[in-house]
């Protein structure tokens, strides 16, 4: 966002601040408030800290009219624009600007130590936020500079998907179920049960709807597609039921025997033998 479009927010307001002319700083040490005429401030007024974008402004204003007396733009803290004195926590040196590229160092002081603390923390918080913003924008810029992975299709590019024999089942969902199978048709066949090849008449009946599932060769030959196909395979009510599965050596023979005793589930055994 362009700087001139950014909002100015107020970080801190202190209604009572003293301003001092200060002697030039000795080059080998920091400022000392004890060198100032602390009991004779050169100006008193209100202090506000505002921020616009990343820059903070310390504004000295008339207590009554609010007219701007002087302001100090601060681009970093701690930095040259705001310095603490070496001998007190209540006094600071700020660099005010006249707007034409000239600046002057003046001393400011708070009678209340808490006000000085607030002043300090307001600036610290603002520049902590600036640091985070800078890091975030740097990271997002690095992300933008990485080559992008383009997984889109090129102009006119096509791909061909081959998904088993799913096309054979198209339209099968709306096919009415044979009555009498009830909820039992949702159950998958027991794994590795004895397999009987369906008689020709049965496979003719279902060839209009689905391709007959592959016959497992062994106990490990079954797969998930067999189970799924069970959902739509019709119970061959209209066809002649195949011979019942031999129960002499079939682990699951009891099921066909038991279900055949229930009248309306008579076609059920023929449903199992397809697998």
């Amino acid at each position: 966002m362009a700087a001139e479009l950014e909002y100015e927010s107020v970080l801190c307001v202190k209604p009572d601040v003293s301003v001092y002319r200060i002697p030039p700083r000795a080059s080998n040490r920091g400022y000392r408030a004890s060198d100032w005429k602390l009991d004779q401030p050169d100006w008193t007024g209100r202090l506000r800290i505002t921020s616009k974008g990343k820059i903070a402004y310390i504004k000295l204003e008339d207590k009554v009219s609010g007219e701007l007396f002087a302001q100090a733009p601060v681009e970093q803290y701690p930095g040259i624009a705001v310095e603490t004195v070496t001998d007190s926590s209540r006094y600071f040196v700020i660099r005010i600007q006249d707007g034409t590229g000239r600046s002057a160092f003046i001393g400011i002081g708070f009678t209340d130590r808490g006000d000085a603390f607030d002043f300090n923390v307001s600036l610290q918080d603002h520049f902590k936020w600036v640091k985070q913003e800078t890091e975030i924008s740097k990271e997002s810029q690095e992300m933008d500079n990485r080559p992008k992975l383009d997984l889109g299709f090129k102009e006119g590019q096509t791909i061909k998907l081959s998904i088993g024999n799913i096309t054979a089942k198209k339209g099968g969902a709306s096919k009415p179920r044979a009555s009498g199978t009830g909820g039992l048709s949702l159950l998958p066949p027991p794994p590795g049960g004895k397999v009987t090849i369906p008689p020709p008449s049965s496979s003719v009946a279902i060839s209009n709807h689905v391709t007959p599932p592959p016959i497992p060769k062994s106990n490990h030959g079954g797969n998930d597609s067999d189970i799924l196909l069970d959902l739509d395979s019709p119970a061959p009510v209209s066809t002649s039921a195949p011979a019942p599965v031999s129960t002499s050596n079939d682990l699951w023979g009891d099921f066909s025997t038991a279900s055949s005793s229930v009248p309306n589930q008579a076609p059920q055994p023929s449903n199992w033998v397809q697998f």
């Binding site: 002319r21 050169d42 701007l68 600046s103 160092f105 003046i106």
Partner: peptide, 16 residues
């Protein structure tokens, strides 16, 4: 700004 009335003699060109 009014600060110049009081502190005008303190202002110097801001070093870059």
């Amino acid at each position: 700004p009014p600060a110049l009335d009081i502190f005008g003699d303190l202002f110097e060109s801001t070093p870059e």
